[in-house]
Amino acid sequence: MNLVEDILKDAPATPPVKYTAKDFQSDQDVRWCPGCGDYSILAQVQRVMPDLNIPKHRIVFVSGIGCSSRFPYYMESYGFHSIHGRAPAIASGLKIARPDLMVWVATGDGDGLSIGGNHLIHVCRRNVDLKILLFNNEIYGLTKGQYSPTSEVGKVTKSTPYGSIDHPFNPLLVALGAEASFVARTLDRDPKHLQTIIRRAADHKGTAFIEIYQNCNVFNDGAFFKYTEKETKDDNVVFIEHGKPMVFGKERDKGVRLEGFTPTVVSLKDGKYSASDLIVHNEKDTMLSFILARMSSIPDLPRPVGVVYAVERPLYDAEVSKQIQQAIQKQGEGNLEKLLNHGETWAIK
């Protein structure tokens, strides 16, 4: 047993009391702009936390830099507001050193996909057991309004007065390309769905990547309104659920069907197609996950929202611990005297 295990051996493994959302509110004043989508994300996370049955001293939120990265200050748990883009790497080190902790990462489209893109993809491929909340608002907020790696081509911002010519990242495709074992999308303005997805991520073993469409009401207001507002949402979003056909529309009268590898929208009204002709979502289907993620880049297709992909594969942090246990079993606990005296030595008298 090392010293850390020793001092923590009596720490309770379950919450001493039944928590409520309020137990996860820190004493810090929340300083996001009034009306910011971040408030909803914070509230839903705080609402889900009590259900996890994990004591708050075992929960850590790590963030980088940006509006989203203020998140840890507002959570009554352990929190670590670090430097731009590096949260996945810091969180990896923490989780590998301390597999007993539940480690969350709060990041944004700039923090996670631009300056920290490298760390994000490597966390995903390793499958470190981290829960990553990527707040995507398609803009740089904290630096006051430059285009981000998810901004659309043509976007006029302070740094692109003639329109952006950068092709944007599709966050789901980045995570899937890096072979994340859990990839989902949800909406800041749909608290119920947001809670469901956060809960799914918390229960997932391995890197859980959630893209959250988040409205920056100051610098990019309405970027996702088509997908989040009552009038347009139903016709532009398809909520995907494992084992269920991809039906959408205000009247539940439209569906997504595969023609070859190309998803197309079909009407269920005229009797030509029925639910059995549609894609039945399968979270474990790698190929399907790419097709669903790709739908965001095809105009006229609804955006899939929900768990796109969820599979289990070995956890990096657990594998590290396993190798250590195996080495100890095979060679015995490290003996410093033996280490310093191994190999060739000689005595001088």
């Binding site: 850390v4 790497a89 080190g93 490298n118 760390h119």
Partner: peptide
């Protein structure tokens, strides 16, 4: 994955004891 992740992962580990 790079030098920066080398040091920042170490910082994360130190934070954890």
């Amino acid at each position: 994955e790079d030098e920066i992740a080398g040091i920042t992962s170490a910082i994360g580990a130190s934070y954890g004891g």
